[in-house]
Simulated assay, not measured.
Amino acid sequence: MKGVLLNNLGSPDSTNIKDVKTYLDEFLMDERVIDIPYWKRYVLIKGIILNFRPKKSAKAYKKIWWDEGSPLVVISERFTEKLKQKIDIPIELAMRYGSMSMEKGIKNLVDKGVTEIFLAPLYPHYAMSSYETVVTKAEEILAEHYPSVILDTLPPFYKKPDYIRVMSDNIAHHLKDFEYDHILFSYHGIPERHIKKSDPTKSHCKIDGSCCERNSVAHYTCYRHQCFETTKAIAKELDLKEGTWSNSFQSRLLKDPWLKPYTDFELEKFPKEGKKKLAVITPAFVSDCLETLEEIAMEGEEEFLEAGGTHYKHIPCLNDNDDWVNVMKEWIENWNNN
């Protein structure tokens, strides 16, 4: 029997500092998130970051928490329930971090008699700290507990035409009554070293402004290239004028170089350039979460207006949009029928 495991990032169980600390501990100790030697990671996370970050993060989560729970989890559950109404095979939702673990999701499928799993990481782009860690974790669980279960995986869908179409339709819908000077495509940031680590050629990725435009096998695992391709495809689909849109990267951690330009720097710069009516979209996420609802929709607006901007619009993620549900349904059915 075939089954599907949808997988998103995860969330603390509550806004309680203890729950946030537990979640951050698991997340930040992942070697694909903070890729430094274990002993250094242990000292940094458990000895330093977990002594101050949980309180700050708990405060941020409280600003965006819904009555039903974490927005990311609630939205992902709604998306999953809509899919279940359209597809006959078993579907489970799991999170890479937190109590809705991948172990539980896989066990639930196996307990229903599933012997072949279609893993669908809900990340459009390939990155060590998102797509790769989900796939690796699934492989480890199956190897240890269910070695006879077959695993198939949905590839990154950053430029699949049907994904670009629903993304573009969503953006157009939310821009219908908004007159903008500029659209900012803000992607989640990652350290520059992750780009080079993910390069199978160990020579193509230079992060110099040109390597993303040269054809290479490295693009299959290059987050930066894939982000730029998503933006270009959406801009083409929406027929956006050159100069009215740009890319940036948000959510830096530590002092290492991360992908540039930085979103917060761009938000401060735009008003000085006469771009005072700004729309911001976050295409690295399919579900609204802390990084979109608090960092972009709240903090981003405050930074932009303080810098002299006059109008600011955060465009929601696809969330449980019916068209997005139908796209995932088609991808699953194509796999199931092969």
Score class of each variant (00 low, 15 high):
Leu9Pro: 00
Gly98Arg: 08
Gly3Pro: 00
Met328Ala: 08
Gln250Val: 12
Phe52Gln: 09
Ile234Phe: 09
Trp331Cys: 00
Ile49Lys: 02
Lys206Ser: 06
Pro121Val: 06
Pro316Ser: 07
Ala143Cys: 03
Glu302Ser: 13
Ile34Pro: 01
Ile48Gly: 00
Tyr97Met: 03
Glu295Met: 04
Phe270Asn: 01
Cys227Lys: 05
Phe52Lys: 14
Asp111Ile: 05
Glu303Cys: 01
Val33Cys: 08
Cys205Ile: 08
Thr263Gly: 06
Val43Leu: 15
Asn337Glu: 14
Ile171Arg: 03
Gln250Ser: 10
Tyr187Gln: 09
Trp335Met: 01
Asp169Tyr: 04
His194Gly: 02
Asp322Phe: 00
Glu303Ala: 13
Ala218Asp: 04
Lys86Tyr: 02
Val286Lys: 00
Phe249Ile: 09
Gly98Cys: 05
Glu303Gln: 09
Ala58Tyr: 10
Phe270Ala: 01
Thr115Asp: 13
Ala172Ile: 06
Glu242Lys: 15
Met95Arg: 04
Ile117Leu: 13
Lys40Gly: 15
Asp181Pro: 13
Gly10Val: 04
Glu192Ala: 08
Leu24Asn: 02
Leu240Phe: 12
Pro191Leu: 10
Ala143His: 09
Gly309Lys: 06
Tyr158Pro: 06
Met128Gly: 11
Asp162Tyr: 01
Asp322Tyr: 02
Leu254Pro: 02
Phe265Asp: 15
Ala218Val: 04
Leu267Glu: 05
Asp288Ser: 08
Gly3Ala: 08
Lys86Glu: 14
His194Ala: 06
Gly209Ser: 07
Phe185Leu: 08
Leu278Gly: 05
Leu50Val: 11
Phe285Thr: 05
Ile171Glu: 06
Pro191Cys: 11
Pro124Gly: 08
Asn336Met: 02
His174Cys: 10
Ile150Lys: 15
Phe118Asp: 02
Val280Glu: 05
Ser11Ala: 10
Leu238Glu: 08
Ser57Val: 13
Met167Trp: 09
Ile36Met: 01
Ser11Gly: 04
Gly274Trp: 02
Ala138Met: 03
Lys255His: 11
Ala297Asp: 14
Gly105Leu: 01
Asp199Thr: 13
Asp208Lys: 03
Lys137Leu: 08
Gly98Asp: 02
Pro261Ile: 09
Asn336Ala: 12
Ser186Val: 14
Ser101Asp: 03
Glu299Trp: 00
Glu140Gly: 02
Met29Ser: 11
Glu301Cys: 07
Lys107Val: 01
Asp19Cys: 07
Pro261Phe: 08
Tyr163Ala: 04
Glu330Ser: 13
Leu238Ala: 03
Glu295Thr: 11
Ser287Glu: 01
Asp208Val: 01
Asn7Arg: 00
Asp177Ala: 15
Gly308Asp: 06
Asn321Leu: 14
Gly308His: 07
Met167Thr: 13
Val110Cys: 05
Tyr312Ser: 07
Tyr262Phe: 15
Phe178Lys: 11
Thr136Pro: 04
Met29Trp: 04
Lys46His: 14
Arg252Met: 14
Leu238Ser: 09
Glu139Leu: 03
Glu299Thr: 14
Lys176Phe: 11
Lys112Asn: 07
Ser198Thr: 11
Glu140Lys: 13
Asp288Pro: 00
